[in-house]
């Protein structure tokens, strides 16, 4: 009897923790570089994202080739010359936050997410202020931050240096649906 209750308690604990994990394959990440000469806007709508609200961990993974550019040639150059998608197909992020965010209740939470961002095979520690919004079962994670391509050893040749912003703006918008 004693063992049974112990087992049940452990099992209960185990499952409640797991229900805090939400996953999606349809997160959206876009990046933007606006200069007088050229605007670059690309969007990836197939970002995989997972949040573990119990452990306060969060992770992203995306295929660089799934970034869509309005110009075909630009997309080709992005993959071949800049991020080298054949060599480094994915960009990933894995991090955590310290703030309390209850994903079972509606509300908006400001989180400071700290973790490791890997792009072009280069991993860097980053801290990104983000917001988590919970509304009727939908958890939305959103953030905007600046990213310098040279930090990730993405080489920008001299001839196009005026056409690409030194710091690109990255926008993240991820929706998780909770199924109770």
């Amino acid at each position: 009897m004693k063992t049974l209750s112990l087992c049940a308690a452990a099992l209960l604990f185990f499952t409640t923790v797991h229900s805090q994990i939400l996953m999606t394959k349809k997160g959206v990440i876009s990046f933007h570089s606006h200069t007088i000469l050229e605007n670059v806007d690309a969007e990836n709508k197939n970002v995989m994202a997972v949040i573990d609200a119990g452990k306060k961990h969060i992770a992203f993974s995306m295929l660089m080739k799934q970034f869509v550019f309005p110009k075909k040639l630009m997309q080709q150059h992005f993959n071949e010359n800049y991020v080298e998608s054949d060599k480094f197909p994915k960009a990933t992020f894995s991090g955590s936050y310290a703030e309390d965010a209850d994903i079972t209740k509606d509300g908006t939470y400001s989180l400071t997410v700290t973790g490791k961002l890997t792009i072009h095979g280069v991993t860097r520690d980053v801290t990104i202020p983000s917001t988590l919004t919970v509304q009727s079962g939908t958890v939305t994670g959103a953030t905007t931050f600046k990213l310098n391509p040279t930090d990730y050893e993405i080489d920008i040749p001299f001839i196009v240096r005026n056409k690409i912003e030194k710091e690109n703006t990255v926008k993240v918008n991820v929706e998780w649906k909770q199924n109770y």
């Binding site: 604990f13 185990f14 923790v17 994990i21 996953m23 394959k25 197939n46 995989m48 994202a49 997972v50 573990d52 452990k55 961990h57 969060i58 992770a59 992203f60 993974s61 295929l63 080739k65 799934q66 075909k72 997309q75 080709q76 993959n79 071949e80 990933t92 894995s94 991090g95 955590s96 973790g115």
Partner: peptide, 28 residues
């Protein structure tokens, strides 16, 4: 439970990305 660290979240993503591999055009 404790073992679900940041990295295993990433591993979880990798595993599910393997099962739902997208078709990617080989361009250029």
């Amino acid at each position: 439970t404790v073992g679900i660290t940041q990295d295993s979240l990433l591993t979880m993503l990798e595993d599910s990305s393997k099962s739902s591999q997208a078709t990617v055009a080989v361009e250029g």
